[in-house]
């Protein structure tokens, strides 16, 4: 079954710039696999527009990029798009992936309690290393790719109609595969440093389901 997809892509600092560019790859894949795509990028990643699209079009899948904390996922300029206890019911009957810090801890369980089908996120900070010289061209940054490729695996799997648990497991496997590769190959100092953050992200990715 083809889902409609809503994606939020704020872009106002280094971290969100990287997520913004990497999420574009997911949009390219979604164009082949999804129904309608609602791309709330930059200034459009605000609460009013987010709630409006969610209510009007009811996309089955939501991919949220941006900063966050235990109770919140934010959009452009850190405006809260969803906050536990305020508007999590908007995620009812949706599968959500939040590439955002810590929201899997509280917002995830709140959302599922409020009717979301599944919430995949991180219950701690999401770390990634990047190459300062590639800040303006994140798509060419091989260092960041080490982290963002496994993180994107959740959406890739969901778009291929895998279940949320399978998507979560596939992403964790991808993190582990990447870490093993760096442990066993002739990795550079930077790549060796990446291993601990990969393991961290892998361990703290959570999938909350009904």
């Amino acid at each position: 079954m083809k889902h409609n997809l809503l994606i939020t892509r704020p872009n106002f600092d280094v971290t969100t710039r990287y997520l913004f560019v990497w999420a574009k790859k997911i949009i390219e894949l979604a164009e082949k696999k999804c129904g309608k795509i609602f791309d709330l990028k930059k200034q459009r990643a605000n609460r009013k527009e987010f709630e409006s699209v969610m209510r009007k079009h009811e996309p089955g899948l939501a991919f949220l990029n941006g900063h966050g904390d235990e109770r919140t996922v934010a959009g452009q300029d850190n405006e809260a798009l969803i906050r536990a206890g305020e508007n999590e019911e908007i995620l009812k009957a949706k599968i959500v992936y939040a590439l955002s810090c810590r929201s899997g801890k509280t917002l995830g369980p709140y959302s599922v309690k409020a009717g979301a089908d599944a919430y995949i996120g991180y219950d701690e900070d999401f770390y990634f290393l990047y190459d300062n010289d590639k800040q303006t061209r994140p798509e060419q940054d091989k260092t960041a790719e080490i982290f963002l490729e496994p993180a994107s695996q959740v959406m890739i799997s969901l778009l291929k109609n895998h279940s949320p648990q399978e998507a979560h497991a596939n992403s964790r496997k991808s993190f582990a595969r990447q870490a093993r590769k760096l442990l066993t190959s002739g990795a550079t100092a930077l790549e060796s440093s990446a291993i601990k953050y990969l393991i961290w992200n892998m361990q703290h990715q959570v999938c909350v389901e009904k």
Binding site: C101, D133, L190
Partner: peptide
């Protein structure tokens, strides 16, 4: 051991 040109993103921090 991190190179000079490496940056680490720690989410909202």
């Amino acid at each position: 051991t991190l190179p000079d040109n490496a940056g680490l993103s720690i989410g909202a921090q």
